[in-house]
């Protein structure tokens, strides 16, 4: 059992924040390439929240949001989820494919979002992989459009195995030209044992 995670102490938080920073930076670069536009990223906000507060940052437990979920495979086990509100999801699709109709989130919009999520989470995890010298890959994506509370119950339950808090990294991407901003949250969810492996590889004394 990891004792580090129970505390989420300041050193661990700093390391996870830095991972978030670099990972999201990589993701922003990937996004910029994908849409052939300059994309800025605000400094990620790392939040350690109680379960009850989690859905509030996305507009409340009943707010409809998009979650794209990946399993982590390789030397660490766990998962990563990218969550964004429906407005941001629509903007992201429109940035990628201008002119496409996203009314009602049709199949086409879903597969576009899965692909965007794949690229963002993939570049996030590949930077984590090179930072830690661990072989980590992501699975194929699984997407859900539903109540924030329901979607976030998935990472909350995983974190629930080790404590009563959840760690989320908020990223805001801003497309330079039209100043369209897209708000998304990465939630990295290593399995209990993998936390120690990950932090150990990053040089954190446990």
């Amino acid at each position: 059992m990891s004792t580090v995670v129970e505390k989420f102490d300041s050193v661990v938080l700093d390391v996870l924040k830095e991972i978030g920073n670099i990972g999201a930076g990589n993701a922003a670069t990937a996004l910029a390439k994908m849409i052939s536009k300059k994309v800025d990223m605000k400094v990620p906000l790392v939040n350690v929240l109680d379960f009850s507060e989690v859905p509030e940052i996305l507009g409340g437990p009943e707010m409809e949001v998009v979650g794209i979920f990946f399993k982590l495979e390789g030397e660490i086990e766990g998962s990563i989820m990218f969550v964004l509100d429906t407005n941001s999801a629509q903007k992201l699709i429109e940035l990628l494919m201008p002119g496409i109709s996203t009314d009602g989130f049709n199949e086409f919009a879903f597969s576009a979002l899965q692909e965007i999520g794949n690229i963002l989470a993939g570049s996030y995890i590949s930077s984590l992989s090179s930072l830690s010298n661990l072989d980590i890959k992501i699975s194929v994506p699984s997407l859900a459009l539903d109540m924030a509370g329901a979607i976030l119950s998935v990472p909350a339950i995983h974190f629930g195995l080790i404590g009563d808090k959840i760690l989320m990294i908020e990223n805001e991407f801003v497309e330079e030209f039209e100043k369209d901003s897209v708000n998304g949250f990465f939630i990295l969810i290593p399995e209990v044992d993998s936390y120690d492996i990950l932090l150990g590889s990053l040089g954190v004394q446990i």
């Binding site: 109540m147 329901a150 976030l152 119950s153 339950i157």
Partner: peptide
């Protein structure tokens, strides 16, 4: 939580819980 008549109880956005 526990409630008595005439109150009601609600929980929002149940997923795997």
């Amino acid at each position: 939580k526990v409630a008595k008549y005439p109150n009601a109880l609600t929980t929002l956005g149940l997923g795997s819980c």
